[in-house]
Computed example of a mutant assay.
Amino acid sequence: MPANGEIFLVTGGNGFLGQEIIKLLIEENLSEIRILDKVIEQAFVEDLQALTGGRIKVTAFIGDVRDKEVLQTACEGVTCVIHTASVIDVWGYISNEELEAVNVKGTQLLIETSIQQNVKCFIYTSSVEVVGPNVRGDSICNGDEDTVYPSKLKFYYSKTKQVAEQLVLTSNGCLLPNGEQMVTCAVRPTYIYGENCRFMIPHLDEGINNGNILKRTSRKQALVNPVYVRNVAWAHILVARAMKDKDRKKIVGGKFYYITDDTPHMSYSDFNHEMMSPLGFTLPEKLSMPLLLMYFTSFMMEMLQFLLQPFITYVPRINRHLITMFNTKFTFTSHKAFSDFDYIPRYSWEVAKKRTTAWLASIVQDRRDNLNKKKLELQKQKPKS
C-alpha cells in the first residue's frame, strides 16, 4: 500500500513508551517517522528501518524540546506530534527549575513550533499523577474523566505535568498559518509497566540485596491499576486515527483520557511480587513498620535533607508523599476512551505478565552475579585479623 504522505514526530522516541509507539506506527500508512530525543541508539533506528522494509522513512533528531532550532527542523512538514518526552522525578533528584524547563517550557515551545509549522494534530502523554493522590491520601475507586477530586499535589513533577497538559488542551482549535485548526488531546495512563521499565529495576535490586525478599512499602488494600506499556502505545495510535476523522476529531479535541487495561487491581508492592515471584522472590504480608512510623521516619529524613542542603546533596530513598502514593487506593477506568475512539487493550494481562516476567528473568541473573561480585570485592578489602 503506498504511503499517504503523513509524517509523525515522536518526542522521547528513544524512551520506554516512545519506542513502543514508534513500533506501532510502522503498521500505519505513513511516509516518515521522526524521532526526537537527547540520546537515540543507532541500532534502534537501523532496526526500525529494517522493519519498514524501506516503506517508511525513519529520521532521528538529536536534541531536546528546549532547542528551538532542532524543533523547527523536526516539525517541518509534520502531520502529527506525539509528545512523550518529559523529566520524571518523584524523589527529589532533579531541581524544580529543570522540571519546569523541560516539562512546561519545553512543551510550550513545542506547541508554538507545531503551530508555526502547520502541525494538524498534537497528542500529549500525560499521567494519572496530574490528579494525585493528594497530600491527604483521599482514595479514588474506578474514577473516570468526570470524577471530581480535591487535588493538592505534592510532587513538583506532577505539578509540571498538570500545567503542560493544560497548555496542550487549551491549544486545541488554534488557527494554523494555512487556515486549518490544530487538534490536541492528552492521554493519562496509570502506572506504566512492561519490558525495559526502569522503575521496576530498583525493586528487583533491593529484593536481591535482601536475599530475594521484596520490600513491602504498600498495604494490600491500597489498590492501583497498572497498565501495560504496549496498550498505552496502542491508545496513542487510536487517538491519532480519531484525529484524522472529521467527526471524531471534534469529540477528542481538547479532551484527556485515562488509559487502563485488564491488569488486576493490586497494590504496588503486590504487583511487583506478582511479576517477580516466578523468579524466586517472596514478599512479607505486612509493612515492615506501622504506617505512622513510616511517615515519622520519612519526616526526620526530610528534615536531615533540609539541614544538609547548604553543604551536601542528600536525597532520602523515600518521602512522605511517596508513602502516601504507595498506600492510597487509586484506580480508574478507560470507558470514555472506548466510547470516543474505540480503545480496547491490544494485549491481555496474561500476555503482558508473561512478557514482563520474561524480561525480568533475562536480567536477574546478571544482577545477582554483579551483587555477588561486589560482595567478594568487599570481603577482599577487609583487613585480615
Rank of each mutant, 00 (worst) to 15 (best):
S362R: 04
Y347P: 00
W349Q: 03
A352M: 02
M325W: 14
P316W: 12
R346Q: 15
I318W: 08
F306E: 00
L279W: 08
M289D: 08
P284M: 07
T313L: 08
N327K: 13
F341D: 04
F332A: 07
N272Y: 02
N319V: 06
M289K: 09
N319T: 13
A337Q: 03
T331W: 13
G280F: 07
Y295L: 10
M301C: 03
H335V: 01
S298C: 10
M303G: 08
D342K: 05
S277C: 14
A361C: 04
E285H: 01
R317H: 11
H321D: 15
Y295R: 05
F332Q: 01
A337L: 09
S277F: 08
T282P: 03
K329I: 02
E350I: 12
A352D: 06
P345Y: 00
P278W: 01
S288N: 15
R317K: 15
E274C: 14
P316Q: 07
F341L: 10
T357H: 07
S348Y: 09
M303E: 10
R320G: 14
T357I: 04
I312T: 15
T324Q: 15
M325H: 08
L308K: 09
L291W: 06
M276Y: 06
F296S: 11
H273P: 01
I323C: 11
L304G: 15
N319F: 06
F311R: 11
A358Q: 08
T357F: 08
L279P: 02
T282D: 10
S288W: 12
E350V: 06
L360E: 02
H335G: 09
A352W: 05
D340C: 06
A361W: 01
N327S: 12
D340W: 10
I318A: 02
T324M: 13
Q305V: 00
T333H: 03
T328R: 08
S298A: 15
E274W: 13
T313Y: 08
L304C: 15
M303D: 00
R317L: 08
T313D: 14
K353M: 10
R355V: 05
R355S: 11
L293H: 07
V351K: 14
L279V: 05
M294T: 04
S362N: 04
F306K: 09
L287R: 06
E350G: 09
M300G: 01
L308S: 15
T282E: 12
L287C: 02
M289W: 05
T333F: 02
T331M: 08
H273S: 13
L293W: 10
P278L: 10
M275A: 09
F271L: 00
P290E: 12
E302K: 11
S288K: 11
L283W: 03
Q309Y: 11
T331Q: 11
A361K: 10
R346N: 11
K354P: 00
N319Q: 05
L283D: 04
T313N: 13
F341N: 04
S298L: 09
G280A: 12
S362C: 06
D340Y: 06
T313E: 14
I312S: 12
L360Y: 09
V315S: 06
A352F: 03
F296N: 01
Y347V: 08
E285D: 14
E285P: 00
N319P: 01
K353C: 07
N272I: 03
K329L: 06
Y347A: 01
S334A: 15
K336I: 12
K336C: 05
F326P: 00
